[in-house]
Design a protein around this nucleic acid. Structure first.
Lengths: 341, 341
DNA sequence: AGTTACTACGAAAATGTTTTCGTAATTTTG
DNA sequence: CAAAATTACGAAAACATTTTCGTAGTAACT
């Protein structure tokens, strides 16, 4: 790589001091108009660019935000990342991504790496494994050090820090109630294990809606899909008794499950939405392009990314005032398509 | 944020010089065993972590790779990014992402930003707009400066630098030939505009296969979908004459187009794959979860990310030997599903 | 005993900036 | 005309580290 020209080079060449050059390029009033012009012209001609590393060391500020997410090949997370990138950029920050790939260990490693001074703050969505093992020491440590951090989507309550979540309970409630109001009486839930916080919240919302409408919950209608399960087989249990099929399904664990359920139902000869209504939590291309297209709870990933950055930059730039941590909640929309009556 | 302990702090406290501390912590033979132990114990107790910024300034190395991609909410690109992240990490690099969002301007901005010393090298896939306007000055400038850069997927031939691409022509050829061998005689192509390099290459492969099997290309069977077109309407032109429907479709522009075509065909009463076979270029969830699941040319995104990083790190770390630039090509696989006979 | 070699450390330079402070020269003010 | 203020710049510190070189003291060799 071609080596770059530095302040010192310019100073030597123009026979002034480096401080003069620095001030001139920063338009300081201390420098005479003529000298400024001379220096600026020279700098421009030789395409001088200040060394970012030196600036960062000097200012003790990296202008980089670290993002730790479980996956990237994932519609929701990539949408959030898009929001993060766009908003961070507009505020003069760059984005560094670390993927934990669902492993607590990699999550910890990434945090270590990032907080070794490479970033000014961290945005993280913790993995399921972290929630399962309840090991938050790596996060707690950051908070204790007053290192700026914002958790989003998959958050942990036990750590006192800024968080930003989807209204999971409200969304599940809304979806369930919608199906009930459309006449469904046997609404099934494809559930995420309870140890995952969003899983238990969605289940809570589902049960609340049943309760409000005086429908007795039926354990057979709640199918918890664990990480290593055979999805098809597990969901098929809902369709074992042909006299007792569900007439509605909330796929709290996403489109793949919704899509699989739809396929199974079709194979059983059911029509959608006439015999069975399906709502999926999370809305991406599958739900839009399946046949019929699926009614979905849309989570505003872009907005979530944007607001997460907003919270974080606030933390980073207002270190003086000890603001109490915030817990923001984003609402979801029910996007009606053709998989519901 | 809690301020960190530095070498100088340790030195002062233990009444030695900073150089001694530095050497001790780096296990230099110059320091006596006792002194080393004293210093290490102190450093460990106070959780000393070297300041990354200082290290970077000193070594003139950021250990960061910049990635510029047009989109992130995109199965292929996010898969590539995943490969990049994983492999870069294993080599001690972090990844900074910049999204050009399809805009040449943002692409240029990102490059400026990154090359101002924030990263050791750049991995980029140029936007369609860049290809359309044929404005490669920002890339050429990097190459002229011998700044390490590798282009992948959407590359430009006019710039002499390392590139990594999918075998677009070969893939399209393979897909087209497969349909022909299965008995299709009117194979349509949903095409990307020619100014996009991968678009013209795929078309070339398509035509080559027709030619090999002595089938006269039919302009009516080639539908070029431009950025602002109504996709549904455009694809429908293939089904205007019921006596002359296509019996095969290659969706060179991806699954959304393939899926739309499939929907239109079904609406016209065609059965898939009996009346019409469809192959999509790019394989993600839509093709897997559509009904029927689609036969697809799978592009090995993860592998592409990995190899791109490999090329780049090679450039970064072997600055001495002036290696001629490399052009690598990755092959594609035809994943047979149910949308082809 | 005199030279050489080795041990264990410190001073200082170097990475490239910005910023504080000092000051000579000039200009303004009373 | 003396005092005060302003202008225009330079020296040096600071950010946190590594590394080169110098050296005092001791040990080893001839």
């Amino acid at each position: 790589m071609k080596s770059k020209i530095t302040l010192k080079d310019i100073a030597k060449e123009l026979d002034v001091s480096t401080s003069t050059v620095s001030k001139a390029l920063n338009d300081s009033h201390e420098i005479s108009k003529e000298t400024k012009e001379r220096i600026k012209a020279y700098a421009k001609y030789y395409n001088y660019k200040p060394n970012t590393l030196a600036l960062k060391l000097r200012s003790q500020k990296t202008s980089v935000i670290g993002v730790i997410i479980p996956e990237i090949v994932h519609h929701f997370f990539s949408t959030v990342l898009r929001g993060i990138e766009e908003f961070a950029n507009s505020k003069g920050y760059n984005v560094m991504v670390c993927l934990s790939n669902g492993s607590l260990e990699k999550e910890q490693l990434s945090m270590d790496l990032l907080l070794e001074g490479s970033v000014d703050g961290i945005l993280a969505s913790v993995t399921h494994q972290t929630q399962q093992k309840k090991d938050y020491s790596h996060i707690q440590q950051l908070v204790d050090d007053k290192f700026p951090i914002v958790l989003f989507d998959n958050v942990v309550d036990d750590v006192r820090c800024d968080t930003l979540t989807i209204n999971d309970e409200g969304g599940a409630f809304k979806a369930t109630e919608y199906l009930i109001e459309k006449g469904c009486r046997r609404v099934a839930l494809l559930a995420i294990p309870d140890f995952v916080k969003i899983g238990s919240l969605r289940k809570k919302g589902y049960l609340k809606a049943l309760n409000k409408h005086a429908i007795e919950p039926d354990d057979d209608l709640i199918v918890v899909v664990e990480p290593n399960d055979n999805i098809h087989q597990k969901i098929s249990t809902l369709f074992e008794d042909s006299n007792n099929y569900p007439d509605g399904i909330i796929a709290s664990n996403g489109e793949i499950y919704a899509s699989t359920a739809m396929q199974i139902a079709k194979d059983k000869g059911l029509s959608i939405p006439e015999d069975l209504s399906i709502i999926t939590f999370t809305d991406s291309l599958i739900s839009q392009y399946s046949s019929p297209p699926m009614t979905a709870l849309v989570q505003h990933g872009f907005e979530m990314g944007k607001q997460a950055v907003e919270l974080l930059i606030n933390r980073i730039e207002n270190t003086t005032s000890e603001v109490e941590y915030q817990r923001k909640v984003l609402s979801t929309n029910l996007k009606i398509r053709k998989s519901t009556r």
